[in-house]
């Protein structure tokens, strides 16, 4: 069997129509009337990639370009019997890839492996690595980040609190008692929420912001204790910093996987955001548990947190239809049920 090929002599770019064939234990190249013969060890056939024509390397920098990959594979298999040297070890991974690429089941299997590994990474890997990074980060960093965030929020959203001094002292006292009891180093900041409305935030570095609006919304002092305990739960777990670290790790890995498409970083925004919302919901549940434990220790009924959560939902968005997987918090109904008896 003679395989047609393009022959180049290694000195110029001139193409010569040629044929390639097995002649006993040797390879015969018939190029423009000149018969050439090479030993099995003198020619290098690169691994196959899809059906791309392969450039065979011959002695003296000469080359043969073969388009018929199946014929070349057959020739190479027969030639292997005569070769004294083994094929380069670096080609072995190519042969594995080629075997997988050529079979539908191989490609589907690889897709399943990617999906499973990415899921496992999003579910366990990124939280593990992100949390480790935060453990290794000194607490002073939290304070710097938190101060910057508060400065930004003050400029963009908040107004100074208009709270009367006696009420402020009462809330501060409840906060101090809770933070001491939970063993958390935290400080309370009063603000008018303006566009953010009735809300409470835990910023990095132990800064808890509470808005005048949520203080007005509370119908019982113990409801405020519940909200403060929830935010202190965030502080205790360094949740904001861990969220930042986890999403950064996710972003880096996703970008690496979709690299080389000219759109890797941009396309990372949406999927990363969905996974990040999942981490956020986990942290909310954790903060709820801290709050419930604290309320229990103080002899306050867990229903205090439920009451204010439900009233919050009624006032902020009475008929909210955000699906749970698009929300940064678990559904209020679920959080209410979590408190248990």
């Amino acid at each position: 069997m003679r395989i047609p090929c393009d022959y180049y002599d290694g000195r110029t770019s001139t193409r010569v129509d040629a044929t390639l064939a097995l002649a006993g234990a040797r390879v015969a190249v018939q190029a423009g009337g000149f018969p050439l013969e090479f030993g099995a060890d003198d020619i290098y056939v690169p691994p196959r990639v899809a059906d791309t024509p392969r450039h065979i390397r011959l002695p003296g920098n000469a080359s043969c370009v073969v388009r018929d990959n199946d014929a070349l594979d057959a020739l190479q298999a027969r030639l292997a019997h005569y070769a004294a040297r083994r094929r380069p070890a670096a080609d072995a991974p190519h042969r594995l890839a080629q075997a997988l690429e050529g079979r539908l089941i191989g490609v589907l299997g690889c897709l399943a492996v990617i999906a499973a590994l990415l899921f496992a990474f999003a579910r366990w890997g990124a939280p593990l690595v992100g949390d480790f990074l935060i453990t290794a980060t000194p607490r002073e960093v939290d304070a710097t980040v938190g101060a910057e965030v508060l400065k930004g929020l003050d400029q963009l959203l908040f107004e100074p609190s208009a709270l009367a001094e006696p009420q402020r002292q009462a809330v501060q006292a409840a906060f101090d008692q809770a933070s001491a009891s939970l063993g958390v180093d935290a400080r309370l900041e009063f603000r008018q929420g303006k566009r953010t409305g009735a809300n409470a935030f835990a910023l990095p570095g132990g800064i808890v912001v509470i808005t005048d609006e949520i203080l007005a919304l509370a119908e019982h002092d113990d409801e405020l204790v519940a909200v403060l305990a929830h935010e202190l739960g965030h502080v205790q777990g360094r949740h904001v910093m861990r969220q930042l670290a986890r999403t950064s790790v996710l972003f880096v890995v996703w970008s690496a996987v979709t690299m080389d498409t000219g759109a890797g970083a941009l396309s990372a925004v949406a999927p990363e955001h969905l996974v990040a919302l999942g981490y956020s919901r986990d942290f909310e549940r954790e903060a709820d548990r801290v709050a419930f434990d604290y309320l229990h220790s103080q002899g306050i009924p867990a229903t205090r947190l439920q009451d204010i959560l439900q009233r919050l939902q009624r006032t902020t968005c009475p008929d909210c239809t955000v699906p749970p997987w698009l929300s940064s918090h678990p559904p209020t109904a679920e959080r209410v049920a979590e408190s248990g008896p």
Partner: peptide
């Protein structure tokens, strides 16, 4: 290219990045 890319990505993840050199060569050669 989808086949080459998928196999390359899966083997790269499984080998903690070591296979990425082969994945790059195959993608470029294609």
């Amino acid at each position: 290219y989808f086949r080459i890319w998928t196999v390359g990505a899966a083997l790269t993840l499984l080998t903690l990045g070591a296979y990425s050199a082969w994945a790059k060569v195959r993608a470029r050669r294609y």
